[in-house]
Design a binder for these strands. Structure first.
Lengths: 357, 357
DNA sequence: CTGAAAGCGCTTACAG
DNA sequence: CTGAAAGCGCTTACAG
């Protein structure tokens, strides 16, 4: 019986009790198992696992490495986290009730960020949240090493910041808080670019569509950029041609039937532009002959719409890369200063804006 | 000094050493702290936290609950996992090198699955993987309680299954292994539906486009369904009108210029259908006048293309819900039998297929 | 270069 | 209904 109990202790794969083989279970090899097999202390194995090779003799290192491989040993992340106080877990917090990833921008951004996190040897936890309380719960439970936020958190930002000491990276924020690290876009410049271009193409009666579910600052900035660029040419953006409404279908239809019908509309996102084009088409009108449309984002699919969408392009991959890099800089150096990085945007000219006289 | 040391021990927020205040750190409240404040044992707090209210007196429960709330206590998931052997972590494994979430199907599926996992009180880890080795590493490190796979893992499925004892849910798999749990589609029926419809609309010269990066079985099944449905009407699918190539642009262009040019093409996904429509348009041809196109998936954006895309619809949300439900059924009951669930598809008729004589 | 000891914050299993 | 003890699998901090 002693022998059997020893089997129980020394070989995780086989479970004997009182001389009866109860079963086998998937053997979970631990650091201690490796240490026993290699005839070294757990500490030595730990050093090898953590690549602190300077502290281990070359022979020991090779022997341990070989056994780790043979046994298929994978360190237990929970145990590691508990003792080291670092989880190598990053939370990606996406604002949204229903399926936020159905918006191509969110999907692309989240996808890139996940991949970059993974490439750094960290694991991405993806959360969809609605309110501030959930954020803290999520960040605290797993003691994540950092978090990247997508969406509108400006109102709760102060609370979120105060509740956590880990690095927090926001995207597209216009918060006035000094200590916020943010990766954003020159949304105002995007509006200006759209305005300049539409003017250049001969448009004078211009509209704006900002149908995001959140009436966010980024949408307002894009709007103000457009408005100001027109103003410089002494052209006023007609208020009746401006729609701020997530259910924009009926106001848009009304606008297109009205006397003030614009010759061009700048939509705050490609998705809105595409839906607008569909609506206009359904009214028996043509894009761009009856209405020119310019979008924002330059989603991959915008190159495949009919007509292909002229748009203000942002580089989502670049934004995701920067967000990840800044995050890791802050993880490695807790005293790194807050930074607000503003990426440029540019015009991508395709077919949805026509030149008029 | 004794008093100072006690401060160090009993109040995490303030760090005194030898009478000098070194600093404050974000106080991480532990279960032990709650127990001390509530004057009960850690076990009692643990019971309250885990809602084992039957084992705690009502008064104790209320008192502990109040203190937990006051102190903002959040249990440490790493510690929980380490001792309980359950992490409440689910891995979502998506096959793909670069940004797999730029494919709307993947984004929608991953998004829904994440949300359902979250709703169950679990946390989703999102991983992009290329090869089999990575899978095991990812699943082992965090000791996830289960995993959902998206993409082609048929070849490695046996290995993956053998390496893990946790519930594994595959999607869109055509593996022959009996013990695999899978949520799939009736892809063959989808092909048939497309075939029937095109025949009904008067098409006799029909093509197929399967440009997925993976020449997956789902694409083949959709193809065979189409072929068989035509065969029943004694119509042969012309091999020259079939393209299996992820770089389909130039073969598609050649096909459209050839004598065998089909009047309709069934594309294995909406994304391919949209790209095909763009290509045809660029050749100066019209969809559907010169070529009818039918897709597969019924992505939200397919309702906004021009012309709007006729397609074979699958219910991605339903698929994600089922995958999650089956996963949790298997987590709760380790002996639950493997199941292969096949969801139905249906035709959504829009504008991209024209009736010909 | 190596290792013994203590502890991270919980839960399991048991005793009362 | 309540709690003391042991342990999950690692790492930290220290000693040699």
């Amino acid at each position: 019986m002693v022998e059997n109990r020893m089997l129980l202790v020394y070989n995780d794969a086989i479970i004997w009790v009182n001389g009866i083989l109860l079963g086998r279970r998937a053997s979970v090899v631990t650091l201690k198992d490796i240490a026993r097999i290699a005839q070294v202390s757990p500490m030595t194995v730990s050093r090898v696992v953590n690549k602190q090779y300077a502290k281990v003799s070359p022979q020991t290192k090779e022997r341990v490495l070989k056994i780790i491989k043979e046994q298929g040993y994978v360190p237990n992340s929970s145990a590691r986290s508990l003792s080291s106080k670092a989880t190598r877990l990053i939370a990606i917090i996406v604002q949204g009730t229903d399926n936020a990833l159905e918006y191509p921008y969110n999907a692309a951004m989240a996808g890139h960020v996940c991949r970059f996190i993974q490439d750094k040897g960290y694991s991405p936890l993806l959360y969809f949240v609605n309110d501030y309380g959930e954020v803290t719960q999520r960040l605290r439970a797993w003691h994540v090493d950092g978090a990247i936020f997508m969406g509108m958190f400006d109102d709760d930002m102060r609370n979120i910041q105060e509740d956590h000491t880990i690095p927090l990276i926001f995207t597209d924020s216009y918060s006035q808080l000094r200590q916020v690290t943010n990766i954003g876009l020159n949304d105002y410049r995007g509006g200006e670019l759209a305005g300049h271009y539409l003017l250049k193409m001969g448009h004078r009666n211009i509209g704006f569509l900002g149908a995001s579910t959140d009436l966010s600052t980024i949408v307002r900035q894009r709007y103000i950029g457009l408005r100001d660029s027109l103003k410089k040419e002494s052209i006023t953006l007609n208020d009746r041609c401006v729609i701020f409404d997530s259910l924009f279908e009926s106001p848009a239809r009304a606008l297109m039937q009205s006397a003030q019908r614009p010759t061009a509309i700048f939509a705050a996102s490609d998705i809105e532009a595409i839906r607008l084009m569909d609506l206009v088409r359904n009214m028996g009108l043509s894009v761009p002959d009856d209405l020119s449309v310019i979008g924002f984002d330059n989603l991959p699919l915008s190159a495949f719409t009919s007509p292909r969408l002229t748009t203000i392009a942002q580089d989502i991959r670049q934004k995701a890369l920067l967000a990840t890099e800044v995050l890791f800089r802050h993880i490695l150096d807790k005293s790194a200063p807050a930074e607000n990085i503003i990426l440029n945007v540019k015009l991508v000219e395709r077919e949805s804006v026509i030149k008029i006289l």
